[in-house]
Design a protein around this nucleic acid. Structure first.
Length: 834
RNA sequence: GCCGGAGUGGCGGAAUCGGCAGACGCACGCGACUCAAAAUCGCGCGGAGCUUACCCUCCUUGGGGGUUCAAGUCCCCCCUCCGGCACCA
């Protein structure tokens, strides 16, 4: 009995999915090494935190990434598609505190579980390259990177007002504070004065900004978010002198054209001169009370636009360096200590905020910009005039257009040494210390005689001790381990103390995409030649929630490494796809809402291919996706439909020993069918290329529907059979990147012995697309009124005459004059009547 | 407030360059198969009117205006939703 007769009549994913997963793994068909002749392609999805369970958001991310990787592979690229674990972080510590499981064990168990789920999804990773950021072989190089930054003056320690999350018991970077709340646990963040490690990302502010224009493959949305975050603004820093003490009060402004309109100066309550000014003021107590109130206010309340602007006069005066005028010095709650110089000049006539402040405290308003349109004073309007205009009341600059005046004033200030052109950023340095255990230790030692000493590179990694007592105290638990803390100074050999803070986990994830090039290299973080072969990542796929944090830190690292000569590229990700969320009943799936659809349940009930197909079909990747159980049924039904089609024809297909390639002499039905096959192939190829998975699936469904209609004809002769055979091959190949198991199974059922995933993408036979006859739409006054079938390629004149001859057309235009006729060749004729 | 993105049948969505709106799927309805049900296969499916044969006509892509022979697509104004930023001097 011949083997194919054993083909099951029903699609049984439970049997075939594990079977192929095992074979793929054993044969290592997704293993990759640099290839001399093939073009390279680096497909990457954001590596997950090993929480223990994959959810639908993960599934979507990885289904999209896998489809991209597989499609490129079939198109002749040498594809790097790796996966790893962002394995340091707080949940492991919390699990340890709650359940007494050491973070390393908890993390390892979770990784094992999640890797198993990844494998059950049939994702085409080269698992030999797996990395975990908590592995000493990995974080050795995270620490090495810290040392390189330190060596180049980009890692430094300073005492500063920092964000402290009382729940997480650690400091946070600015990027990790969202509307005053902790990004991770939504607890209100408080300010603490602490000495911490920072990375000087601000040195790269301009490049981070400018390079965005080069990133053609990034969504505009993400680039805009980064631009806003960097917040570059051009202006001048102009120095006001304190009247009695001659202390400098530098002020940053973008409206130096309004300098003659300054009627007061406002300092942030935290400004360093405040102490000096109020020290012997008769109103000292009153002022201190005000400052106390402001600094006690939380960051959210203080920076909320709704918050009332309050201030207090210090009684001191400053001198306007341009006009020589004396103006009062105030302290205001709305002046932020960490932007610009922590002091602002007040121009109530031309800044709405200053205008309101001046009204409240009865400060003078002095108009220095006249609106070009109207001459009446703005006092009557009750608002500041913030637009450009003509300068007035500005001796030496009167009559100038304010934009021109800006330059003139900046030049004047620079020539007199009272101010200089300056660029300010909202971006601040990246705070990377964390007072927690489960992270990469900072490779620094403090010595009484040598000070801050970097650990020599040959002593890396500084390993994290594994048995640790957990008490969340706000101090790193590493403090309690004398063997860890007490060390010899690497410089002088004297007694020294190790830094006990660990690094922000975003540090670990800012370079993992490079490590994948050489995941097991021991003497170097990577081999430059290999890394330069693979990088940059050609297509990066992940959630938009990382638009700023992870994506900007990674760009910063890549630029830095480029500057060191360790990488050729200075941008890590050439193309970025940010996939939408998976929703249930319109809401994000979350534990608290209890609306999570677990992957495990999906895999058990429908299998990996159905889950993947539904997720890709239901919505375009960037858009949010509403989870719909009935939609999943539909996806499953489609796969069964393909299964039955192949089942029905596998005898015929196998009986042709080789693929029929002679397609001459087809009758018209066969030709139409074949045209549909190649037209679909063309469409699906384009769709996958632009990541339009939903339309690619829809197109394939349409083709399968047509093939069902063609079934009876397919049995009428060898030519028809050959068309069906080619069609089924094409369908399986087109779907292989999306649903790898069923296509592999059927590929073997129709007589192939090699893997479908090592096949080449099919080629469109352009000759099959040629249509001799075509339908032309006839419009009268823009409305479709008739259609005609004609030979393709007729000229406009012919189409026009033919259209006007039609009964239907003559009937409609009988008593009217034809004013004009528009012809789109091979498409439509529009007859316009008077 | 500012900056993005979106708004299309009962639902998810399609229309890639200004040229037939509603592909494909879900749901629903009808038919075939069946003792029956499920599954499957086939057909129908935006709304209204007119015919209740086929046809035909009108309306319809958040609302209003415009450009054009022709607009879901381009321009102007407005509404709603989502995301980001938000006293940044």
């Amino acid at each position: 009995m011949r083997r194919w007769l054993h083909m099951k009549d029903k699609y049984n994913f439970k049997e075939l999915e594990p079977k192929w997963q095992k074979i793929w793994e054993e044969k290592g068909i997704y293993h990759v090494t640099p290839h001399e002749t093939k073009p390279k392609y680096y497909a990457l999805e954001m590596f997950p935190y090993p929480s223990g369970k994959l959810h639908m958001g993960h599934t979507r991310n990885y289904a999209i990434g896998d489809a991209i990787a597989r499609f490129r592979r079939m198109n002749g690229y040498c594809v790097l598609h790796p996966m790893g674990w962002d394995a340091f972080g707080l949940p492991a510590e919390n699990a340890a505190i709650e359940r007494g499981i050491p973070p390393s064990d908890w993390t390892r168990t979770n990784i094992d579980q999640m890797r198993h789920q990844f494998q059950r999804l049939g994702l085409s990773y080269d698992w030999r390259r797996e990395v975990a950021s908590c592995h000493p072989g990995y974080y050795k190089w995270t620490q090495w990177l810290f040392l390189q930054l330190f060596k180049h003056g980009l890692a430094y320690r300073k005492k500063a007002q920092v964000n402290w999350c009382p729940a997480c018991q650690t400091v946070l970077a600015n990027e990790q504070v969202v509307q005053g709340l902790c990004d991770r646990c939504d607890t209100e963040v408080i300010k603490k004065e602490l000495e911490q490690w920072f990375f000087k990302i601000t040195d790269y502010a301009d490049r981070l900004l400018e390079n965005l224009d080069k990133l053609q493959g990034w969504p505009e949305k993400v680039k805009t978010m980064q631009r806003n975050w960097i917040g570059r603004s051009e202006g001048v820093e102009v120095v006001f002198k304190l009247k009695d003490t001659c202390d400098d009060i530098p002020v940053f402004t973008t409206r130096h054209d309004t300098i003659f309109g300054v009627t007061y100066v406002v300092l942030a309550p935290e400004h360093h001169l405040v102490e000096k000014i109020i020290a012997d003021s008769p109103r000292e107590q009153e002022i201190r009370r005000f400052i106390g109130e402001v600094t006690r206010t939380s960051e959210i309340d203080r920076t909320s636009e709704l918050a009332e602007k309050t201030g207090i006069s210090t009684g001191a005066y400053a001198i306007n360096p341009m006009s020589g005028q004396e103006i009062p010095v105030w302290i205001g709650n709305y002046v932020l200590p960490h932007y610009g110089t922590g002091a602002v000049m007040g121009v109530p006539a031309h800044d709405q905020r200053d205008f309101e402040f001046s009204k409240k405290y009865d400060l003078p308003v002095k108009r220095v910009i006249a609106s070009p349109n109207q001459n009446e004073g703005m006092e009557a309007i009750g608002a500041a005039y913030e637009d450009a205009g003509i300068m007035v009341n500005s001796p030496g600059f009167d009559g100038m257009e304010s934009e021109v005046g800006k330059d003139a004033i900046a030049d004047f200030m620079e020539s007199r040494g009272i101010g200089k052109r300056t660029i300010n950023y909202k971006l601040r340095d990246w705070l990377i210390s964390r007072q927690r255990y489960w992270g990469a230790p900072i490779p620094i030692v403090y010595c009484d005689s040598c000070g801050t000493v970097p650990v020599p590179e040959d002593q890396l990694p500084i390993e994290l001790p594994l048995d640790v007592e957990f008490r969340p105290t706000g101090q790193s638990p590493l403090n309690d381990i004398p063997e860890f803390v007490n060390v010899e100074c690497p410089k002088c050999g004297g007694t020294a103390r190790r830094e006990t803070d660990t690094m922000d986990t975003f540090m670990c994830s800012s370079w993992y995409f490079i490590r994948f090039a050489c995941p097991r290299m021991e003497d170097k973080p990577w081999d430059p030649e290999t890394a330069n072969y693979w990088l940059p990542v050609d297509q990066y796929t992940g959630g938009v929630e990382h638009a700023i944090l992870h994506l900007m830190y990674s760009r910063f690292f890549t630029m830095f490494l480029h500057d060191l000569g360790l990488l050729e590229t200075d941008e890590p990700f050439a193309h970025l796809l940010t996939q939408g969320m998976v929703l249930k009943e319109g809401a994000k799936m979350s534990k608290s809402k209890g609306n999570i659809v677990g992957l495990q349940e999906m895999l058990d009930a429908y299998g990996a291919d159905t889950a993947r197909l539904f997720i890709l079909f239901a919505s375009p990747p960037e858009r949010d996706l509403e989870w719909n159980e009935q939609g999943v049924e539909g996806a499953s039904r489609f796969l069964s439909r393909i299964w039955r089609l192949v089942y029905e024809f596998q005898g015929e297909i196998r009986s042709c020993d080789s693929l029929q390639t002679d397609m001459s002499g087809l009758n018209s039905q066969e030709r139409d069918m074949r045209r549909k096959v190649h037209a679909t192939l063309k469409k699906v190829t384009q769709d996958l290329d632009r990541h339009s998975f939903n339309t690619a699936v829809a197109g394939t469904m349409e083709l399968v529907n047509s093939l069902y209609q063609f079934r009876d004809i397919a049995r009428t002769g060898t030519k028809a059979r050959a068309v069906m055979q080619e069609a089924i091959h094409t369908v399986l190949l087109m779907l292989a990147p999306l649903v790898p198991h069923i296509t592999e199974e059927l590929w073997h059922e129709i007589g192939h012995s090699g893997s479908i995933h090592q096949e080449s993408w099919p080629t469109v036979d352009e000759s099959a697309l040629v249509e001799t006859e075509i339908e032309i739409v006839i419009q009268v006054n823009g409305k479709v009124r008739d259609r005609m079938r004609l030979q393709k390629g007729r000229d406009s004149e012919y189409l026009k005459t033919e259209a006007l001859k039609r009964d239907r057309v003559m009937e409609l235009i009988q008593d009217k004059n034809v004013r004009d006729v528009f012809v789109v060749p091979d498409r439509l004729v529009n007859i316009v009547t008077a």
